[in-house]
């Protein structure tokens, strides 16, 4: 008989034994993500110039000693904007993922644990949310609450919540029939305690894998909104907004100020996907054992 219990190990041991023993692609992506976070945190000290200040003597410049990756049509230093722009690219998706994960876990756990008609109703509501396009929801939120980081993050959080909720719901419904859960109930523990403190931690890694993948997609969606001019507003540096601002420079034959943030978005999104999926695969393999 195969054990389908999720196996837990201390995080450090898991990193050493499983994580770092993965293929080169995974390791490259992990390094990339660590670099991304470090840059985002220390951007103001790392950036050689203030990306909000235009150097009007050097607009749409190519790469050079003064401007490592050139400038856009406002004379903003592309390299500095890239570094500082990493902050909103980290904070925005982080807000989306934290909110959608917390609410998704609460909704999914409640629904999966209760079962019956409560579960059926919540399931239908989630279906409706699934069917609603996330970008449309974001545009609605911007129309209501105005441009900036807040409204799109809120909308994305609402749009991403059903993915986590559905995952947690399914896992909970499956897990609550395991005899260890029955044993906790027979011992006299309160059902709420068993669900939150005993069952939920056994779902942790799977949910974390889903949230990691969500982070990448949220980053992409938020960049798209900024590109459309609905998200973070210039001169605050943001990768999506940078691509938007670079239009004139691209037409003038200086595509670097558009290419650089675009490549950054793609790399980080791919890295989050690879890491998240690898994490999920690893759990699936361990489950199958």
């Amino acid at each position: 008989m195969s054990t389908t219990v999720l196996v837990r190990r201390p995080l450090l041991g898991r990193l050493r034994g499983g994580f770092l023993a993965q293929g080169w692609l995974f390791r490259v992506c992990l390094v990339l993500l660590v670099g991304f976070v470090v840059v985002a945190v220390f951007a103001p000290w790392l950036a050689p110039q203030d990306p909000t200040m235009g150097d009007f003597a050097n607009t749409m410049a190519g790469p050079g000693a003064d401007h490592l990756l050139g400038t856009d049509q406002g004379g903003h230093d592309t390299f500095s904007a890239l570094l500082v722009g990493a902050r909103t690219s980290l904070l925005g998706p982080l807000g989306v993922v934290v909110f959608s994960t917390v609410v998704g876990i609460a909704v999914g756990l409640f629904s999966g644990w209760r079962g019956g008609w409560v579960d059926a109703v919540i399931g239908r509501v989630l279906d409706i949310l699934f069917a609603f396009p996330s970008l449309l929801l974001a545009i609605l939120a911007v129309a209501l609450f105005g441009k900036g980081l807040g409204a799109p993050v809120l909308a994305m959080a609402v749009a991403y919540m059903p993915y986590t909720a559905r995952l947690v719901r399914g896992l909970t419904a499956q897990e609550k029939n395991r005899p260890y859960v029955s044993a906790y109930l027979v011992q006299g523990h309160a059902p709420v305690y068993v669900a939150v403190r005993r069952l939920l931690p056994n779902l942790g890694p799977t949910v974390l894998a889903q949230s990691t993948v969500n982070f990448g997609y949220a980053l992409l969606d938020l960049a798209a909104l900024s590109f459309l001019g609905l998200g973070v507003q210039p001169p605050t540096p943001d990768w999506g907004a940078m691509i938007n601002q670079a239009e004139a420079a691209v037409l003038q034959g200086q595509p670097l100020s558009a290419v650089v943030p675009a490549v950054a978005v793609v790399l980080v999104v791919v890295a989050f996907n690879v890491v998240g999926e690898q994490f999920g695969d690893q759990l699936a393999r361990r489950d199958a054992k």
Partner: peptide, 21 residues
């Protein structure tokens, strides 16, 4: 709940799944 627990306890069939991993 505690009184009921003290009345009757159970041991399940599958020792691989009945303990919290």
């Amino acid at each position: 709940r505690l009184a009921r627990a003290k009345a009757i306890q159970i041991v399940f069939q599958d020792p691989y799944l009945s303990l919290d991993a």
